[in-house]
């Protein structure tokens, strides 16, 4: 036992590490997601980018156009807007890569960037 421990690394260690790395690579390929960040777009300008995985406590972002966006760990949503129909607020929380919601009267869009696995290129409806 003592003898074996003198070696810092054994081939089997590296093989195990390689297996996990290969799994990580495969996941990165299959997952292909980048669903960790969200963007807030007003007009054509991206006014804010939020790393949703780094969010620890919920907070809100008040935009200049009167729209308020809520951010919490892993999710983003409209929480208040001066628009009459409140469709944006009713769209609820966005969590998955590629999801988006818009407040049309205020020309404000929030979306989770990236594409979930097998996500379609576009949505109709």
């Amino acid at each position: 036992m003592k003898n074996k421990l003198k070696r810092f690394l054994r081939p089997a260690d590296l093989i195990a590490a390689a297996a996990v790395l290969a799994a990580a690579g495969l996941l990165a390929l299959l997952g292909g997601t980048d669903g960790a960040t969200a963007e807030i777009i007003v007009g054509r300008q991206t006014v804010e980018t939020v790393d949703l995985t780094a969010v620890r406590e919920p907070y809100t972002i008040a935009l200049d156009n009167g729209v308020t966006v809520a951010v919490e760990p892993g999710a983003i949503s409209f929480c208040a807007s001066g628009c009459p129909n409140q469709l944006c607020v009713r769209a609820g929380k966005l969590t998955k890569a590629g999801e988006s919601a818009a407040c049309l009267p205020n020309e404000t869009l929030i979306r989770v960037t990236g594409r979930a696995r097998n996500a379609p290129d576009a949505l109709t409806g």
Binding site: A24, L52, T53, G74, A75, G114
Partner: peptide, 9 residues
């Protein structure tokens, strides 16, 4: 949510 799974790799 499964959002954090993208962090897995």
């Amino acid at each position: 949510s499964a959002l954090y799974l993208s962090w897995l790799p």
